[in-house]
Design a binder for these strands. Structure first.
Ligand SMILES: [Mn+2]
Ligand SMILES: [Mn+2]
Ligand SMILES: [Zn+2]
Ligand SMILES: [Zn+2]
Lengths: 131, 131
DNA sequence: ACACCAGATGCAACATTGTTGCATCTGGTG
DNA sequence: CACCAGATGCAACAATGTTGCATCTGGTGT
């Protein structure tokens, strides 16, 4: 994937990529850091991890989003694309996120000058168990 | 508004409230701080401003949301309601938020059991100056 | 008018998340 | 195998938000 994307294949990038490949959800910098520090290989520098994540996003392998606390989270672009076309429901009580396949995300129609990069349709409320 | 909401009417709350009443968009802590520091009255303590904003959100006068950089922004709840029907554009670089009147927020069609409370259509990208 | 006190304020210290500068190292290329 | 663009590691810095605590004050009851 790294070679395909035209970036250097380095140990830190391979280690972070394997995290993202295994992950079931979007991971924060802190989560990846603690996951990696549990491995046999040495710790990965905090700043290097930030820069690895930047490079993975920059070359299109990963995507970056914000969680409810304002912390950036990362997932493979391939995984993210599967969720880009439908809405997501955020339960205000339990925090869980549900896919809402019945609500497609509309195509952006922006005023001239604006460059749209992503569109998200987010519903807040109470999920069945919480309601 | 403060008396109505059942919280003490204090000078800091009145000053912050007047900012939010004048504001054309959701304001960040930093924006409110610099706006207030330009006034005749003395500077308002950073921490007090955080706590005033918390109290305004807590008593239902204001609403809190995240901008594209992960910074919290605040606006009057009443004003927020006026923005519930259209999309919003978040600049990834400068954090500013723009109304996109041309993109209406779709009516929620949720699976049975889910209780929708709010719907947001959020576009991320670069605003004209930043692009 | 006055005393009282829950809660609001101001200040210092701290925590978390993310960025910048710079010296050194290394993956890939010729 | 030499070279170098770019990646890494470390230190310092920046931005945003939180906690602890002493002091002050808005509102209430007398
Ligand atoms: Mn989904
Ligand atoms: Mn709007
Ligand atoms: Zn729930
Ligand atoms: Zn911008």
């Amino acid at each position: 994937m790294l070679r395909q994307a035209g970036v250097k294949v380095t140990q830190p990038r391979l280690r972070v990529l394997s995290c993202l490949l295994e992950a079931q959800a979007a991971l924060s910098h802190a989560e990846i850091e603690s996951w990696l520090s549990a491995e046999d290989a040495g710790e990965l520098d905090r700043v290097t991890l930030y820069r690895v994540l930047d490079s993975l996003v920059g070359c299109g392998i990963a995507s970056r989003s914000l969680d409810a606390r304002g912390v950036f989270r990362f997932m493979l672009k391939s995984m993210q694309l599967a969720h880009a076309e439908h809405a997501h429901f955020h339960c205000q009580r339990c925090g869980r996120v549900f896919c809402v396949a019945s609500m497609p995300v509309p195509t952006p129609s922006l005023p001239t000058g604006f460059v749209g990069i992503s569109v998200a349709l987010e519903i807040s409320g109470l999920c069945p168990p919480c309601a």
